[in-house]
Design a protein around this nucleic acid. Sequence first.
DNA 1: GATGGCATTGAAAACGATTACATAATTGCT
DNA 2: AGCAATTATGTAATCGTTTTCAATGCCATC
Lengths: 357, 357
Amino acid sequence: MVLDLMHDHDNLTENDCKMTVGIKDVARAAGVSVATVSRALGGGPVSDELRKKVEAAVAATGYLPNLSARRLRSQHSHTIGLIVSDIRNPFFTAVSRAVEDAAYAVGMRVILCNTDENPQKEAMYLRLMQEERVTGVIFAPTRATAQKLDPHQLGFPVVLIDRAAPPGQTDAVVLDNAEAASLLVEHLLAQGYRRIGGLFGNTSTTGAERHAGVVAAMQQHGLQAEARFIAPTPEAAEQAVRDWLHEPVQPEALIASNGLVLLGMLRGARAAGVSIPAQLALAGFDNDNWTELAGPGLTVIEQPVYDIGRTAMKMLLERLEDPARSARKVVLSGKLIARGSTAQHMAAPAGQDAAQH
Amino acid sequence: MVLDLMHDHDNLTENDCKMTVGIKDVARAAGVSVATVSRALGGGPVSDELRKKVEAAVAATGYLPNLSARRLRSQHSHTIGLIVSDIRNPFFTAVSRAVEDAAYAVGMRVILCNTDENPQKEAMYLRLMQEERVTGVIFAPTRATAQKLDPHQLGFPVVLIDRAAPPGQTDAVVLDNAEAASLLVEHLLAQGYRRIGGLFGNTSTTGAERHAGVVAAMQQHGLQAEARFIAPTPEAAEQAVRDWLHEPVQPEALIASNGLVLLGMLRGARAAGVSIPAQLALAGFDNDNWTELAGPGLTVIEQPVYDIGRTAMKMLLERLEDPARSARKVVLSGKLIARGSTAQHMAAPAGQDAAQH
DNA sequence: GATGGCATTGAAAACGATTACATAATTGCT
DNA sequence: AGCAATTATGTAATCGTTTTCAATGCCATC
């Protein structure tokens, strides 16, 4: 078969002139039809003899498949979209890594899009995904977009992450926000804090759900939480905390609705010169690297970030197998990691729960 | 022209059956040829009259371009590859965001690949990039791959980031590592530290260059630095520090060759119970969010991360315009941010530079 | 009033693969 | 032995665009 490759060396010289070597050139070099080459490459029914010839020809010609052509003809893009607000948010960074690992493992490409919580950008990227004829999309939408999202309209399945849509509409994998918020509140109460406030992102359902969870948990104890809604950025959070700390009545503890807000909170508290947790306790979501090391260590809810990404990808694949099955929502539990930022409240009135200690 | 769209409503009903609406359907709806539609969409020479008709037909049919077909025919993928070791490294996270912003701004897609510093994965992804017929690639290679990298062989231009290749071969945008290392060393010396050690990543040229920079700067003062090379991960760094601190002779200050190593260092130091900076000063690279907030604040070299990504993309575009121009290397300066982790060395022998204070 | 140039349009080829269909060869079964 | 079923292979159509090429019409110029 080596002879086969050599006898038509005119072909090889011809290759030097051609821009790229295609399946046609391989076929000629192997002395078979293009269909056979395609089948040999794609795992179709081909005799061992010809398959060997084709493989040799591929190696000899340096053939590289053209994925665009393959996608066009086969109508399979083997591509998924991952649309998040900002990859620099460590939560999304970790999720994206999991999604990409899972995607590449099944031979799929990932297109990453940053929307900056901007519904216009979201719409633009969704449209791009349609033009790419993506196999599916994993999406963390703003509240605005989540409401008017119709997967059947889009032409590809969607799995929501971190943020849920109206129930029953779309597959989603989210944190149990009510449970997690409750964990935080119970912990703070047990540590002796009573005047508990919170800063919540105002663009996502997640911020709203965590807020609702905090309110509910507080009410169970006959307490009220003071909540403020802000853009989910460190900058907005820092400013909000600085403002808050200049007001006459101040909280004993603050809860942040995600890692970026928590970061801003800590900066704001430091800038205002309050000591943590003596003057202000801090707690929040997302066990980012730095939370362990900052100040006295920050108490957080750890999300199973890698698991969320992997699960989202798994759900997408399942949905592709069975497009008809009913939408399901996977709810994962967060884990409370208590650290110094919520140490026992010293100034707590000795009367109440503090006695239990 | 509305009439034109209505009179052939048989066409519209036909659309309901077809899977997707293509340029052909738009042409029929608009009463023009496919070539005209293509030109109208692509900004070719088309009369205003027909262009209006086409636009109306596009809206009426809900046409969406098929990017795979477009790529195949036009031979322009409008796609670039971004190959890094791990997107979860905050340095690469930030760079990737900049690259994507710049790419989408000029109508390009980005394919992100994580290699985990594994040359095999690097080879695999480079091959994938060839199959995708990418326009170009932005790449942070391991030392092993950087050496045997031949851009002419690959078929697309490459811009290296963070890590350089043999000079004159490839475009690159890197930090001035020698200068940055010198800034750190001079700072530590000025603060009274003498026994300075370092932990450097062993997979990239960057680790080697920063090591060389530290050694050179120390030599200028007649001092020696003790360096150790490790896998550039927090885990490896933490272990290395713990080991180091159990040895008889210990450093007064440690330098980390990147953000992940610095993170591990701090963890190791905490685990060993040494206080910072009293017993051990810490400094490193990458001004990640947490470095300001951890312990006494960590002294670091801040890299212009967003700038690096943007510049890399710009260089790639320039290279595409002029494939013949000679390779250039853009060297950016880092900025020293001094924080508590390298406060004045108390136990410094009063004799030397400490007197200057 | 023919002629050349320019701008606009359409018909058809091409991009590089997959796949439907036809064909030939082999096998298994009655 | 004969016929159906199966397997391996080749030919040609196809995916949805862009682009080449030829044709048309119009204007200005000689």
